[in-house]
Design a protein around this nucleic acid. Structure first.
Lengths: 368, 368
DNA sequence: GCGTATTATTGGAACGTTCCAAACGGATGT
DNA sequence: ACATCCGTTTGGAACGTTCCAATAATACGC
């Protein structure tokens, strides 16, 4: 009884086969497949039964060709290895499939040529929309080309100076300002900043937040504290090594992101030092792993998963009404204090309490 | 001169437009687009020029409809948040785009209903192949349905008992055997195993390796050392807490995977303990982050990225010849010793040397 | 019974490609 | 002058859907 009648030649059973099997026209079958109320339930039943019997699978590409539509969203990410992006992607993807889309994922590895290639590919697939986290130094012509091809585009994380494109990211400057103020509030004065200088707008804003907070509290910045390392774990470790080797070493550091901070934790460890006791460290992004690093990492949380979801939603909105004004979404970051930035190590229970308090206390809504 | 002639109505310029513009037939245009040697270079030039001028973009879905082909590979992952899967995915994706494919990524979050949904979706898109990391408790009917629909299928990481499907994974038992032997060689006798019991074949094999090694060295296993926690960071932390609270506490632990081990590092830290000095810890997977945790984590490396690449290659091979025999690929894991599993903390330089030695010494090829 | 709504169904032309078979123009051979 | 062949080019029928316009079937009012 169940599905063996016709030896199922792969993908070969079509709407016309169903029509023949159910004794109706292919138009009718088509209407049934879209649950049209026009069809008498009885006939619909017959058709569905036939579909079951023949093992029919809907040919979406044929349908989309005809309808000039698509349920594919292209997502271009540059470094999935960074948990921030992984969590971002998961957030997006979840929301997108919920809305009936499917996500064509591409990884650029910070390579411009790859990015061009995958974007072209997505155009050829007539993606219904594209979410792009551009590689460093992406010329504006790239998003412009996407836009010109008529595909709704959302830029994430790294903004273009040109505000014409929808954008979703975090308020980086506010974030590092919070981070730096936190370290200052702990009594630190000699605070370093670890990151890759000149690495685009994100770095700039984060550095600016740090500068701003330092200036506000009239703290001089020794230029040596601006430690220039790649935004990787290895970079973080090297950065902390450099920092400790200075004649005028810092006693705390705000890190470009959580990954750098993890590296820094490791770098402290190899010197027998412990963040939160011998040095204060704070990360940026709020990836899940911060909660269980050794020690747990204070961070500026932008809720990557939530940001991804928001990004997806903005794109969906844009697809629904292509001509509305560009939106510029900035997630408001908040501070999470954990053991990596405590003047002295309290016992575990006390720390936990403090964390929750902070987290609940200031948890602003994201602003649009 | 460059591309502004016709106001580009999105996606609207077709092969027929090019034909008109270049004064040839659409058949000719089609041949040009596929670099057919049949066409006189001169005419080809004219066509290409026209394409440039009109901003033509190839409509892959139309072509694929006609040719009954596809360059889409579906990739179903259950937990991108685990860096192992992220690295696996990156490895696959890189290889796939290199081969001219594009990757339809879906995240199942261990939910069977979602998995069904995305697999159906991939079938509708007529994916050229599917890479599936099945959620726990996936019934065999699921891969069978995929297979029946004629789409080449590769199962990764979690095997089905039925060996009919192509599979790529790691030699889990050998891995934990290595891990356990390493801890034993360090002089440990009371060794725990941290993981989620009953969580499918991967857990079983890994546990088996541990058991085997213990038995081989005639070490009794206190049942309490089999600590049952979810395979997450929080699980690892809880696991180590439980372990330390035992009347007969272990002095070392092999962890189900690196993520669990990271949690365990954190759990040790909150007790003021340090892996490699007060306790020995080893992970499994070899994710990049192990190199820069605090302290750096000993692990059983299966090279996730390389495994992903291998998986992609197997699938590509299967697509090329659909009727060849099923292949069962097991990456041979190897031991990486880092600070988390040293009897006492040597100084940093000595440790580094030891690590590299071990790494170079035994780095077996993967077996097919 | 007959027009007339109303409800269900259907034929067939699209959508943008590919690719077969056929045709074209010119050179070559006889 | 004709057949033949080669290198190029082309018409048009697919591929599996959707959807408009048109038709068929049924119900309704009179």
């Amino acid at each position: 009884m169940a599905g063996k009648r016709k030896a199922v030649k792969p993908g070969s059973v079509t709407i016309t086969d169903l029509a023949r099997e159910a004794g109706v026209s292919k138009s009718t079958v088509s209407l049934v497949l879209q649950d049209s109320p026009l069809i008498r339930p009885q006939t619909a039943g017959r058709v569905r039964e036939a579909a079951q019997r023949l093992g029919y699978v809907y040919n979406r590409r044929a349908a989309e060709l005809r309808r000039q539509s698509s349920n594919i969203i292209g997502v271009v990410i540059n470094d999935l290895t960074n948990p921030f992006f992984a969590e971002l992607l998961v957030g997006m993807e979840r929301r997108l499939v919920e809305a009936g889309y499917v996500c064509l994922m591409a990884h650029t590895d910070e390579r411009l040529d790859l990015q061009d290639k995958v974007l072209a590919s997505m155009r050829e697939h007539h993606a219904a929309g594209i979410i792009l986290c551009p590689v460093f130094e992406t010329p504006e012509s790239v998003p412009e080309a996407v836009e010109r091809s008529g595909i709704p585009l959302l830029v994430v994380v790294r903004p273009f100076s040109n505000g014409r494109f929808d954008f979703a990211g975090a308020d980086n400057e506010a974030g590092t300002r919070l981070a730096t103020e936190h370290l200052i509030a702990l009594g630190h004065r000699r605070i370093a900043f670890l990151g890759r200088a000149g690495a685009g707008p994100v770095y700039e804003r984060r550095l600016a937040g740090y500068n701003r907070a330092m200036k506000k509290h009239k703290l001089a910045i020794d230029p040596q504290w601006l430690i220039n390392v790649p935004p990787t774990r290895a970079g973080g470790r090297d950065g902390i090594r450099q920092a400790l080797a200075l004649r005028n070493p810092p006693e705390a550091a705000v890190c470009y992101n959580d990954v750098v901070a993890f590296g820094a934790l490791s770098g402290l460890g190899e010197r027998g030092l412990m963040a939160g006791r011998d040095f204060s460290l704070i990360g940026f992004d709020g990836v899940a792993a911060t909660e269980h690093s050794n020690p747990p990492l204070s961070t500026i949380d932008v809720e990557p998963g939530r940001l991804g979801k928001a990004a997806a939603e903005i794109l969906l909105r844009r697809i629904a009404k292509p001509d509305s004004l560009a939106v510029w979404y900035l997630a408001a970051p908040y501070l999470i204090v954990r053991q990596s930035s405590l003047k002295q190590n309290l016992n575990a229970k006390a720390q936990r309490t403090q964390r929750t308090q902070v987290k609940n206390a200031r948890r602003p809504k994201a602003t649009v």
